[in-house]
Amino acid sequence: MKAVLLIALLALAGCQSAPVRVELQRVNVPIPVACAEPIPVRPVMPTDQLEPGVALDQFVRAAQAEIERREGYETQLRAALENCRRSVEEPI
């Protein structure tokens, strides 16, 4: 009986291993979040308000004004997009 106990103790002593060292490493992973940026309201375009058969000079003036409005609207859309992208790409 003593021999069995001695063998069991030796077996258990052999199972003891060196202490495990745990090393922590920080990993930054971007987490997508819902964008809360408001969508700019599309402005009324001057050519949408023209009657059919309008004179050419009136149409050209409306088209030129529409180009400026569209550029302003595009600037607002790009700003909203950049604000959404920035919130996702910024490190934590």
Rank of each mutant, 00 (worst) to 15 (best):
M1G: 06
M1H: 12
K2S: 15
A3F: 08
A3N: 08
V4W: 04
V4I: 04
L5K: 03
L6N: 12
L6F: 14
A8N: 05
L10Y: 12
A11M: 00
L12P: 02
L12G: 03
L12V: 12
A13W: 11
A13T: 01
G14W: 00
G14A: 04
G14K: 04
C15M: 14
Q16C: 11
S17C: 03
A18N: 10
A18V: 09
A18S: 13
A18Q: 10
P19C: 10
P19V: 05
P19D: 14
R21S: 14
R21D: 13
R21V: 13
E23V: 05
L24P: 03
L24E: 15
Q25H: 12
Q25T: 14
R26A: 14
R26Q: 14
V27S: 12
V27A: 12
N28Q: 02
N28A: 10
P30D: 08
I31D: 01
V33Y: 09
C35A: 13
A36W: 09
E37V: 00
I39C: 10
P40N: 15
P40K: 00
V41S: 14
R42Y: 03
R42L: 02
P43S: 13
P43Y: 12
V44G: 07
V44K: 05
V44I: 15
P46A: 07
P46G: 01
T47L: 06
T47Y: 06
D48M: 07
E51T: 11
V54G: 07
V54F: 00
A55K: 11
A55C: 09
L56C: 09
L56N: 05
F59S: 04
F59Y: 13
F59A: 08
V60Y: 03
R61E: 07
R61A: 10
A62E: 03
A63W: 00
Q64W: 05
A65H: 02
A65V: 13
A65G: 07
A65L: 10
E66F: 00
E66H: 05
I67T: 11
I67A: 15
E71Q: 15
Y73N: 06
E74T: 01
E74L: 03
E74H: 07
T75Q: 12
Q76E: 01
R78F: 05
A80Q: 02
A80L: 00
L81G: 04
L81A: 04
C84Q: 02
C84H: 03
R85I: 06
R86M: 02
S87P: 07
V88G: 02
V88S: 09
E90M: 00
E90S: 01
E90Q: 01
